[in-house]
Design a protein around this nucleic acid. Sequence first.
RNA 1: CGGAGUGUAGCGCAGUCUGGUAGCGCACCUCGUUCGGGACGAGGGGGUCGUAGGUUCGAAUCCUAUCACUCCGACCA
Length: 442
Amino acid sequence: MRLSRYFLPILKETPKEAEIASHRLMLRAGMIRQEAAGIYAWLPLGLRVLSKISAIVREEQNRAGAIELLMPTVQSADLWRESGRYDDYGKEMLRIRDRHERDMLFGPTNEEMITEIFRANVRSYKDLPLNLYHIQWKFRDEVRPRFGVMRSREFLMKDAYSFDLDAAGARHSYNKMFTAYLRTFARLGLTAIPMVADTGPIGGDLSHEFIILADTGESEVFCHKDYLQFAPPAESIDFDSVSAMQGVFDTWTSLYAATSEKHDLAAFEALKPEERISARGIEVGHIFYFGTKYSLPMKAVVNGPDGKEHFVHMGSYGIGPSRLAAALIEAGHDEAGIIWPESVAPFSVGLINLKVGDAACDGACGRIHAELGKAGVDVLYDDRDERPGAKFAAMDLIGLPNQVIVGPKSLGDGQVEIKNRRSGERELVSVDAAIARLSGKA
RNA sequence: CGGAGUGUAGCGCAGUCUGGUAGCGCACCUCGUUCGGGACGAGGGGGUCGUAGGUUCGAAUCCUAUCACUCCGACCA
């Protein structure tokens, strides 16, 4: 992509409302634009990140056996009256009325709708277990949205819903999602710690929040230090193995970890002082097992092997890709700007032409741009007629992991500079070597 | 929802107290000189001063209402 033909509104100054690093940098890097309180437009660069995060989430959900569908954002109030949550959910739910005066709502979550879809189509235990998910915009009318897309009213959420014949099956489904979440966050370059959590308005009795530690996090959390060293489950792990899944769960819940609502001071202080972490964290995922809370009032039943009807046991599992975009920046930035992990960077290579109009520079950049493009590498080519300083600053701000700097000085010796955004290391290599080196980044 | 505050050009701000017909920096456009870490000169474009009423010869400025947004607290992917 040529920057001169792209839409990347970079800001030199910080809009005053942005208090935390991720919000500031997302605005400055031209990723998002606020349209109303807690409501954001995702500009092209931001959308690329959001899509990459969603793709990883999707891959890991699929790997764990979940099946993607897509439910609407607007729902009928009747469905929520069945579960009793139309009254319980309160003002956080955005209620609207259509032209026929029907009560509608903008979905804050989808337990009711997925249960309706399930009960209309599934009759037999032989169709279980089933886990359906979608990645869709949610709306929760937060009292006080803040921190940009970290706590926005409209946000993107992957929500999965599992259906099992009994509690034991549901437990396995829970463990599969638990494992998938550990893998997902690890692939995003994040260390997320599962913590015992409150279930809130979703309900239920088994629940974990996945927390990444960050000073600007909204939750107060307590855990054992060794969690930071734990290795995530391997790609080859067997999601159908009950013991393997239970093993992952047991390992990752073997040490103390809890949010402030569930904090057990005595248990925490039983740890040696040097083992304790008391910090702030960002909740990037939340999983629940809630049994028959929805299947009972909404009559979601299947025939079991005994020929009788059984209320299905359910769980729900959420990850917020839009919040993750901000969380990734909180976890990876410096004075100059964002530092994306390779896995979600909007472009993997930033190509800087220091002297646009110079035949040698234009030629070398053109070749690198074309060759990397052929190799399937996303390249953002800064071909603007700008001063070098502005180009370096812009590229550092948007945080592309690999930079190729092409200028007349080094190009005189047939060389270009490769810079690693994270380490800051620079290296002079030939044009061909740069292409060869970076074409593996697809 | 309680408390505090802000709305003036895309962004950051001055002007409001003490009414006189809108300004600064950055960004943007043109020309020239520049160019390895956010250049310089000259010229130029862009604002019904959040909105609606009112007071006044005259309102960004005073009064009233209203809307939006931000921050601090209680709730949450």
